[in-house]
Design a protein around this nucleic acid. Structure first.
Lengths: 206, 206
DNA sequence: GTCTATAAATAGATAGAC
DNA sequence: GTCTATCTATTTATAGAC
């Protein structure tokens, strides 16, 4: 039912998706409302009709992204199993999320680089929720006695940036020819194993 | 000698310094030539006289930054001592560099987020030189038998992003009021110790 | 909901006098 | 080396017809 539900969808969704890609590719400032409209195959005025302003559109993209990641982190933290397993799961999930939605890392990196100047309080709260979930996992492991006593924030600030930059770098490598081979992209599965290994080594007692 | 060599200097240097801060604060696209001129207290035309274009100015800022970091990394790699000590030294140096020149992390993060689109081959080479030096340190440790056999690039891609984001995050925290205290900024010395600990744990044979 | 046309501001860049 | 004045293109955003 409904006429061919393959690609087009409604204009609001098309704008939202086009904006997501434009913001990821060029950043908030360099992104053009005209470019988004063209890419979404809608009239520019429709963007203002649906979203009000460029900034509101951007914030909606960001909230959508952070909410998705935050929910996955929350679900893992609240789920069953020992903390060691949850942390492995979180790392695998975060990397899978970044691989499936390649606009996530660049947008996050840019926002952090610009001191989160485009974020309102609600959006910041969504970002914090991700850390809260990760912290809960680490605290659980400390209570279970399997994790040593380290600052959960420092753990988070070691794992998350590595994932973001790993995928941002992939985009760089796609754009420019390489010489030596030293800097070739690494396989995603190898990266997952590496990050899980890093997490275990950071947290294990001895 | 010379008339009061405190703050002013020549107009070219003033433009260069003002541009560095403007690019760090707002990113390449959002940075304004007018704003740079005002901040440097020079006429806008002087910027084009000295640097040719906004892009050329930006690249000069980036090259200057990457060359400085690359030289420090190279000096450590080529210096005396065991690899374990050199790696500690590199981490301390990188963090000190980021703390002393707070424009370094945001500019790097933005450039990676935008797929290095503003970089020419020379500038990319300067960025690669940093990794080459770090790799040399790790290979030395592997030959000395103190480091286990892990991919140097994955090590680099774990340490470097954490440092960049740690300092980018500091700028965020300065901008907005906080509630919980959970996300308060961490002390720089504690961060150095943490990252050195992470490096050792990643590389030691267990 | 969708379009055209356009307002209003700002951007990067340059010409040319001094 | 330094200035004023300006060109040209592009930007976000809106008014108003349909």
């Amino acid at each position: 039912m409904g006429p061919r539900n393959a690609v087009p969808r409604d204009s609001r969704t098309r704008v939202f998706d086009a904006a997501t890609h434009e913001f990821a590719e060029r950043g908030y400032e360099a992104a053009g409302v005209d470019r988004i409209a063209a890419s979404a195959r809608v009239n520019k005025a429709m963007i203002y009709y649906h979203f009000g302003s460029k900034l509101d559109l951007y914030r909606e993209v960001l909230r959508h992204m952070l909410r998705a990641v935050g929910e996955r982190a929350r679900a893992i933290a609240d789920g069953p199993g020992p903390a060691e397993l949850k942390l492995d799961l979180w790392i695998g999930t975060l990397i899978a999320e970044a691989a499936a939605r390649p606009w996530f890392p660049p947008i996050m990196l840019r926002e952090l680089a610009s001191s989160a100047e485009h974020l309102d309080a609600d959006t910041v709260a969504l970002g914090n929720a991700v850390f809260i979930a990760v912290r809960d996992i680490i605290v659980q492991g400390q209570q279970e006695g399997t994790f040593r006593d380290v600052d959960p924030l420092l753990i988070h600030l070691t794992l998350m940036p590595a994932v973001l930059l790993f995928f941002a770098r992939m985009r760089v490598l796609k754009r420019r020819p390489r010489g030596t081979g030293l800097l070739e992209p690494r396989a995603e599965e190898a990266f997952v194993r590496h990050m899980q290994d890093v997490a275990r080594r950071m947290l294990r007692k001895d």
